[in-house]
Computed example of a mutant assay.
Amino acid sequence: MNRPLDPGHPADFARDRLLDVLVPTRNRPAELAVTLSGLAAQNSPPGFGVVVSDQSDDGPSWAEPAAATMARVLRHQGHPVLLTRRLPRRGLAEHRAFLLEKSRARYVMFVDDDVWLEPGAPARMLTAIQRLGCGFVGNAVHGLSYADDVRPETHRHYEEWSGPPVAEQVRPGTPEWDRARIHPAANLLHITERLALGRDEWRAYKVSWIGGCVLYDRARLIAAGGFDFWPLLDARHQGEDVAAQLAVLERYGGAGILPSGAFHLESPTTVTDRDVEAWEVILADEGR
Rank of each mutant, 00 (worst) to 15 (best):
H76E: 13
V81S: 09
F48T: 06
D54T: 13
M70K: 14
A63E: 11
V52G: 05
P65D: 08
W62E: 08
P80L: 04
S56G: 12
A68K: 03
V50H: 07
R72N: 02
R72G: 06
E64C: 00
R75T: 05
V73H: 11
G59A: 06
A71N: 10
E64F: 02
V81K: 08
P60A: 13
D54E: 14
M70T: 06
D54W: 13
V52W: 12
G49Y: 06
A66T: 00
V50D: 12
S61P: 03
P65C: 01
V52I: 15
H79W: 05
T69K: 08
D58G: 13
V52H: 12
P65F: 02
S56A: 13
L82Q: 11
S53V: 15
S61W: 03
G49A: 06
W62I: 06
A66P: 00
G59V: 01
H79V: 04
L74T: 04
Q77R: 14
R72Q: 14
V73S: 09
V51K: 08
G78K: 11
P80W: 04
A71R: 10
P80C: 05
S61F: 01
M70E: 15
S53R: 13
S56N: 11
H76T: 12
R75A: 02
D58Y: 01
T69Q: 12
V73M: 13
R75G: 03
P65T: 00
A68W: 07
G59W: 00
V73D: 04
A67P: 08
D57R: 15
Q77I: 01
D57T: 15
T69A: 12
P60M: 02
A71C: 15
A68V: 02
G59L: 05
M70Q: 15
H79Q: 11
S61Q: 03
Q77N: 12
L74Q: 11
A71W: 04
A66M: 01
R75Q: 09
V73L: 14
A68E: 02
M70L: 14
A67S: 12
M70C: 11
R75Y: 00
A63R: 10
A68G: 12
H76M: 09
A67L: 06
H79T: 03
Q55S: 15
A68F: 00
L82G: 10
F48E: 05
V81C: 11
F48Y: 09
A68H: 05
T69L: 01
W62H: 05
P65M: 05
D54K: 14
H79I: 03
V51G: 08
E64R: 05
G59S: 06
M70V: 12
G78T: 11
R75W: 04
V73A: 05
S61M: 01
T69I: 02
V50W: 07
V52A: 12
T69C: 09
V51P: 09
A67C: 08
V81H: 07
P65I: 05
L82Y: 13
D58P: 00
W62C: 04
L82S: 12
H76N: 11
R75C: 05
V50L: 12
H79R: 15
D58K: 08
M70G: 04
S53T: 15
P80A: 03
M70I: 09
